[in-house]
């Protein structure tokens, strides 16, 4: 928010203790509170969507079924028949990130996916899972992937480190992508919102001109709705791609 004439666009990402004295005592910040809200929303959505369990679904049940089938098709189409066993994990991941991204668009709320600590934790979880699955399915043949097939042996000292770095870059690019998109979107909101406040100090002409940034912010909300679902989709599909490579022989 703008204080005076300076713009503090990153203040919105700061963590503060919430819920008064109790929150202070157990060091509870907004981030875990919004994670719990996100989980509760997703669970409530699925629970109440599935509750009627009718053959001809109502709107709410249809929405829940579409969500289920969307992620299920994503998992099974990308990973193959083995995808069914990873489907619950990918479903939870997709809807946790989606709920986080969309909760952040509610005014006065907090976007937990805008912290690299959160996104990196999610990414490293996916990375470790894919390594465990690779080692379990492929055994020691897993390490053969670090030498590209058909390449001359003389180039191995150059190619193997590059392949290893390329492999290690997966969780980093996965987490940076989500975090950077969320931060950039919310910083843009804040910049254009503070333009409105600055223009309001100019009197009548400022009031007229302030319509511009407000209109841009409304358009940005639309863009952020797209980015929110796209980033959750990219995170989920990359998880599927990494797991497909892990289960492939």
């Amino acid at each position: 928010m703008a204080s005076g004439s300076s713009i503090d666009v990153l203040g919105q990402f700061e963590l503060h203790p919430v819920l008064g004295g109790l929150g202070e005592a157990i060091r509870l910040s907004q981030s875990p509170v919004y994670m719990v809200i996100a989980c509760a929303l997703v669970l409530a959505f699925m629970f109440y969507g599935m509750k009627p369990a009718s053959v001809v679904p109502g709107r709410f049940q249809a929405a829940a079924e579409i969500c289920y089938e969307f992620v299920r098709n994503l998992a099974v189409d990308t990973i193959g028949p083995e995808g069914t066993s990873f489907f619950p994990f990918i479903f939870a991941l997709f809807f946790f990130i989606l709920a986080g991204n969309y909760l952040g668009l509610v005014p006065h709320s907090f976007t937990f996916t805008s912290h690299i600590a959160v996104t990196f934790a999610l990414a490293i979880m996916v990375f470790v899972l894919s390594i465990i699955v690779s080692l379990k399915v492929q055994g020691l043949k897993f390490f053969a992937h670090f030498m590209p097939a058909g390449a001359p042996v003389a180039l191995a000292p150059l190619l193997v480190p590059i392949e290893i770095l390329s492999f290690l870059s997966r969780p980093v690019s996965l987490s940076i992508r989500l975090f950077a998109n969320m931060v950039a979107g919310h910083v843009m909101f804040d910049i254009f919102a503070s333009f409105v406040i600055m223009l309001a100090g100019l009197g009548f002409i400022g009031d007229v001109l302030a319509v511009g940034p407000i209109a841009i912010n409304i358009a940005l909300i639309g863009l952020e709705l797209l980015v929110g679902v796209l980033q959750a989709y990219v995170f989920a599909i990359l998880t599927c791609i990494y797991l497909r490579e892990a289960v492939a022989h």
């Binding site: 870059s169 997966r170 980093v172 690019s173 940076i176 992508r177 998109n181």
Partner: peptide
Amino acid sequence: ARAGSEMLGGLV
């Protein structure tokens, strides 16, 4: 959405 961050990830 992926291309840019893949390149950055390797460098980082």
